[in-house]
Computed example of a mutant assay.
Amino acid sequence: MKKTQPVKRFFLNSVLAAAALCFTACDPDSGPAIPKGAYEKGVFILNEGNFQKGNSTVSFYDRDTKTVLPDIFSPVNSRPLGDVAQSISAHNDRAYIVVNNSNKVEVADINTFESLGSISGLAMPRYFAVANNKGYVTEWINYGIKGRVSVIDLSTNTVIKTIEVGTMPENLLSFKNKVYVANTSDNTISVINAATDAVETTITLAEAPNSLVLDAKDKIWVLAGGKKSYKPDFTVDENKSTVGNLIRLNPANNAVELTLPFASRKDSPGQLKINGAKNKLYYRYAGKIYQFDIAATALPATALINRNFYGLGVDPATDMIYGADAGFFTANGKVIRYSPGGAAQDSFQVGIGPNSFLFR
């Protein structure tokens, strides 16, 4: 019997070692995270497609492998995305894609892009944001009339309230339980209290605000395009038009702290973006891309990129700049990537009419 004890001890030790190994391997906190899906990390490119053709798509770019998937929605859902994809946002592993001419917001699992339903009952929707665990969608409704913001129950994907704002509301920004709405055809920002879902105040500033971002100092920067008047030949009548402006707004008291006018009455600045550190702004103006340090008190005289783009994005993880070239909307567009210093790096083909980016 004594001769068998070492065997028994060896067997027991082996079992305990195996059990310990299994415990370590099976412990979800000790091993590598299980991927949630194919699109957990990368860049989404929204392609609006042709008006009334219903051919909008979402492309996906893998930063690590530098590979591109031209359409990730239709293959997994066996149906098209819709007509004119306007914007894309993310919240809690869900993608919210505003499809303007289909009057809906498509909701998808952001990791697999399987459809999770859609939000209907909208009229010319534009942009989407989340505040106080609710969704907010800007809607033009119709040209020349007051627009609105629809409040969305994110658990049911239904509209629970509508809020009248200014004319042609465009981009919106969520900060400290408030939603700031740029009314593009007015000279105002509507401030919605996300607790009461009512307009708390209206801020008057320069004409035609179109985009806004929050910086590292909790200041809101607004890009206003200026009011444009047109001649019979559709060129800008500079005598009857106003210049665009870059504006710094303090959300603590809604005061306009800084207004920097652009030189041209003809050109409208747009596509305001911010880097990962939130200390540099980027925008499109007069056919070029400019960079602006938030500590500056004057607009830059020299462009960062001497090229115009239909859509603009800045990757917060790398500060790489993405430019969307839509061409003439008759064929697939392309994306050109630039270093933070403005040097072209590479390019790749995407769908028709690329207009915006979502980085993960």
Rank of each mutant, 00 (worst) to 15 (best):
V165P: 00
T297A: 12
I336L: 12
N103F: 09
L173I: 11
K217R: 11
W221E: 01
G117F: 10
N101W: 07
T138F: 05
S89K: 06
R307C: 11
V151M: 03
K134G: 04
Q271N: 15
V149F: 07
S264Y: 03
L214D: 05
N193I: 04
F128Q: 00
N103D: 15
D186V: 08
I321Q: 03
F73R: 00
L212F: 13
I220M: 05
I45K: 00
V7G: 10
D215A: 10
E139C: 15
G276N: 03
I305G: 01
A301I: 11
V222A: 04
F357Y: 14
D218H: 08
I189M: 09
G276I: 01
G342D: 05
Y230R: 01
K219T: 01
T259Y: 01
R63K: 14
A108T: 11
G49K: 03
T138D: 01
G313D: 11
Y230K: 03
Y96N: 08
P70N: 12
Y338Q: 06
Y230L: 09
K334P: 06
V199Y: 10
F23P: 00
D109S: 13
G226R: 00
D267S: 14
L212I: 08
V84T: 06
D319P: 14
G270M: 10
G49E: 08
F23H: 08
G287D: 12
R337H: 01
K3H: 12
N101C: 03
I163Q: 04
V191M: 05
N50L: 13
K273D: 07
L260E: 02
I160V: 15
T235E: 08
K104Q: 15
N250A: 08
I110N: 04
A131I: 03
S174R: 06
S356D: 11
V256T: 06
K134I: 04
K36P: 09
L214F: 07
G49T: 02
D218F: 06
P32I: 04
S174A: 15
E200K: 05
V181D: 09
E48G: 05
Y143Q: 14
